[in-house]
Amino acid sequence: MTNIKDYPAIVISNKHIDDNIFLIELLLPGFDGKAEPGQFIMIKIDETYDPFLRRPYSIFECKKEKVKILIKTVGKGSKMIAEKKRKEEMDILGPLGNGFPVDKNNYPILVAGGMGIAPLWFLGRRLTKLRNKFSIIFGEKTTTPLAEEIKKTFGAKVFFVTDDGSRGIKLTASAALPLILDKSPYRKFSIYACGPKGMLKDVINFGSGRNIPVYVSLEEKMACGIGVCLGCSVKRRGTDGFLTVCRDGPVFKGEEVMI
């Protein structure tokens, strides 16, 4: 039996992390807390028809009825969500899509570009709970308080890189991969990535060059979030067909998709 439902959720807290970044905790009455890192929810902002569509967000954390999401305000919809205060309501459809598979025998390396940390944070928490060792590469253009939050939670597991050198090494997240791997005592790896398309392409290429499995979480504009509108299709590598980000993804094997 699926636990996908349209939950009438209530905002528990809305933490302002940076100028335009918010961490919102929601209460989903009746939700059993069963969600996989990489899965997402669709938020119906309010009962008016503008904005018309729901907004997809990766699950950032999830514990029983409580679900957290990380929001960056970029447009009208995200601004309206960011303005939600304690006790305000939003309908939440989810959990949707497929999460990151965990290869038990491989050492996980999580590569996050900016807001791409959202699903990987959840994966990091899950791996911690499973007592798995792992590393995170977190890249930003310039450092933000988000990096501070990541440091507080994941500590020495995180390797920081920035485009301008304001935190960690002045490098791109994908370029940091060989540094981590070559120093590592482990021999078998899995890479989990989420972030800008350019970064994902580089990570996929790196993985295929070294024969390391890469899992990417993709973003695309979507209307329904459940696989019927076919709005969020991505090209399937090696065929002329498409896969839907919402239903076939949002997590794909790197070699599966053309991005």
Partner: peptide, 19 residues
Amino acid sequence: VGNPAPRIVETACGMLNSI
């Protein structure tokens, strides 16, 4: 196979699609 992405854009009280 359908059209290239983006295939959906939200507009005031509605949406444009080109699947």
